[in-house]
Structure formats: structure tokens, C-alpha cells
């Protein structure tokens, strides 16, 4: 995701240690509700960081990055996985539920309404024309996301081979996503198998 809007957490160490302990389930719900309602444009990670690290000081930068790397490795969206991890850290299972409901609720309500409107008016020529433009722009946006993500999380040229294998498997050979995920995933994980003097590995971090 994009780094846009990430500010370093203010260095007010005096309030930081107590902050995590004082977060109530309601606090968690409200903060994630705000993030869920304001994170227009997809860069939800930046909004999470602003809300949780800079504003609330519920997690520090190091912990945030650690949680983000778990979120990215597991299936599930970054935003909801982060909600689960931060919620659990602050208030256990209840905190997780409050956080994920909060972060999902605004977008869910909005898309519920948008879906109904589209169902009713979607076949009007003007709406169809506008949506054709929206879909084309969305393709550009997703490509940009993929390129920015690639630039940030890949450091080896041979990673391009795993990317290509995945794309070819799904788009050219028309294999199902789980099949490609398992096949190429295992291949890539084995490629990075743990070795004692790991030189290839260090550069990625």
C-alpha cells in the first residue's frame, strides 16, 4: 500500500506506556470506525498508522510493522487482519471483534446503499457510461498498487519469475487461484528455504 500520509509518531513518551492499558472496547470500536469511515482511496495502512501509532499510541512503530508483516502473509485483507491483531493486543477477543466491526461498518453500509442504487439505476445509459470510466480507472489504480507493492517488497530479480508463473497459471493456463497459490507458493517458499548462512535472505528485510 502507499506510504502517503504516514507521519512519524510524536515522541511523547510520557503517555505512551499507559495508553494501551486504558483503551476500552468502545474506544477501540470508535477509533476503527473513524479509520473505516475516512480511509478513502485504498491506502488504509497509512490511515491505520496515523490512528493507532501517531494519534492513540496504542502500538509503537516497530510493533506496527511486525503486525503488518503478519497481516500481509496471512490470507485476509490488511485492514481487517490489522484490526484483529491490534484489537487482540489491546482487549483480547472482544477488542478484535470491536475493531473489525468498526473498520468494516462504514464501507459496508456505503456499498449496501451503492449496490441498491446500482441495481435500480445501473442500466441507465449515463450510469453505464460513467461506470465504464470508473472501471477503466480502477484497472489503472490496481496496476499502480501492484507496481508500488513490488518496488517495496521485492528485492530479487528471480521474484519476477514467481510473479510471472502466478499470472500465467491464472490468466493463461486458466488454473484456479488455490491451485496456483499452492503450487507457486510452495515453490517460492522452498526457494527461500532456511539456510544457516543466509545471504540471499538478509536483503529482503
Amino acid at each position: 500500500m502507499s506510504d502517503a500520509g504516514i507521519k512519524p509518531a510524536p515522541q511523547t513518551a510520557s503517555t505512551a506506556p499507559a495508553a494501551a492499558g486504558t483503551a476500552s472496547v468502545l474506544d477501540i470500536f470508535i477509533e476503527f470506525l473513524i479509520i473505516g469511515a475516512t480511509s478513502f482511496g485504498g491506502g488504509v495502512v497509512a490511515y491505520l498508522r496515523n490512528g493507532l501509532v501517531a494519534k492513540r499510541e496504542w502500538v509503537d512503530d516497530k510493533e506496527f510493522v511486525e503486525m503488518l508483516s503478519i497481516s500481509q502473509t496471512l490470507p485476509g485483507l490488511n485492514a481487517t487482519n490489522m484490526a484483529i491483531l491490534v484489537g487482540d493486543k489491546l482487549r483480547g477477543a472482544l477488542g478484535s471483534i470491536a475493531a473489525i466491526v468498526g473498520v468494516c461498518l462504514p464501507g459496508a453500509v456505503l456499498m449496501y446503499i451503492a449496490g441498491m442504487l446500482y441495481h435500480e439505476h445501473g442500466d441507465r445509459p449515463l450510469v453505464t457510461a460513467a461506470l465504464k470510466g470508473v472501471a477503466a480507472a480502477a484497472v489503472g489504480l490496481i496496476l499502480a498498487t501492484a507496481m508500488q507493492l513490488g518496488k517495496k517488497s521485492l528485492s530479487h530479480n528471480h521474484d519476477l519469475i514467481f510473479i510471472a508463473l502466478t499470472v500465467i497459471g491464472v490468466n493463461r493456463l486458466h488454473q484456479s487461484v488455490p491451485r496456483v497459490l499452492i503450487a507457486v507458493g510452495i515453490l517460492a517458499i522452498l526457494w527461500y528455504y532456511p539456510r544457516k548462512s543466509d545471504k540471499r535472505g538478509e536483503a529482503t528485510q
Binding site: 465504464k132 490496481i142 502466478t166 499470472v167 496456483v180 517460492a188 517458499i189
Partner: peptide, 27 residues
């Protein structure tokens, strides 16, 4: 670490594959 490093390129590949699937209908 192996799992993290291995899944990084695969997840980008899946993102691109999804994008191309969508592009077939949108472009």
C-alpha cells in the same frame, strides 16, 4: 521467514492476475 519471502512475489502475482481478469472486461 521463508514463508514471508516466498509469499510476497506470489501475492503480487495474484494481484496482477486479478487485475488482468478484470481488465479483460473493463478495457
Amino acid at each position: 521467514t521463508s514463508i514471508q519471502k516466498g509469499l510476497a512475489p506470489v501475492s503480487i502475482g495474484l494481484l496482477l492476475a486479478g487485475c488482468f481478469t478484470m481488465a479483460k472486461g473493463a478495457i
